[in-house]
Amino acid sequence: MSLLLNTVLLVFLLVTAFAVMRVKVLLAMVMLFGLYSLLVSSLFVVLDAPDVAFTEAAVGTGISTVLMLATLAAIRHGHSAPIKPGKRALPLALSLAMGALLIFGIQDLPNFGEANSPAYREVAQHYIDKGQQETGVPNLVTAVLASYRGFDTLGEVTVVLTAGIGVLLLLGRREKVHLIARKSNE
């Protein structure tokens, strides 16, 4: 069942990725992108990583889709994506180089589920044995994220907060200018 789900979802993912590239209408592209993200988070659920699926669904399907729609609304005229035929070589080369780099990086990773990988050798046993009594958090994943790696998570929250402030400043600008204009008219 798990294998079937994985295979079919991965095929859907691949087809969606190509469809995102082929579609010319930007709104449809954004919708397909949200769909892609939903597929990825379903895959995370099948792979038994519900917390990652949570994040992917919230960020990918929720916020990204709404933000991209807001961007489309802000630029107004962008309802088609014209591509000049001569300018495809550089993006293609960049994508291929990036892909090659990623595949090169994969080789250093331990195999999936390998018992000797660093993740299992070093601190995992300590977390499993002592996690509950040291942190008092019932869920082990939450204990690691919020307590053992608390500073890491704090850094992530800072990054997300900064990004959120930036986006709000960009999107809220027009409204504010509008308000100021109205006040000066009064």
Binding site: L38, G62, L69, A73, L171
Partner: peptide, 24 residues
């Protein structure tokens, strides 16, 4: 969570289609 996000995404998309702009 999926069903909530699904709802929000579709409402956002439909608002954009209907009005052409939605924040201001």
């Amino acid at each position: 969570l999926y069903s909530l996000l699904n709802f929000i995404g579709v409402v956002a998309a439909l608002r954009l289609v209907e009005r052409g702009h939605f924040f201001a």
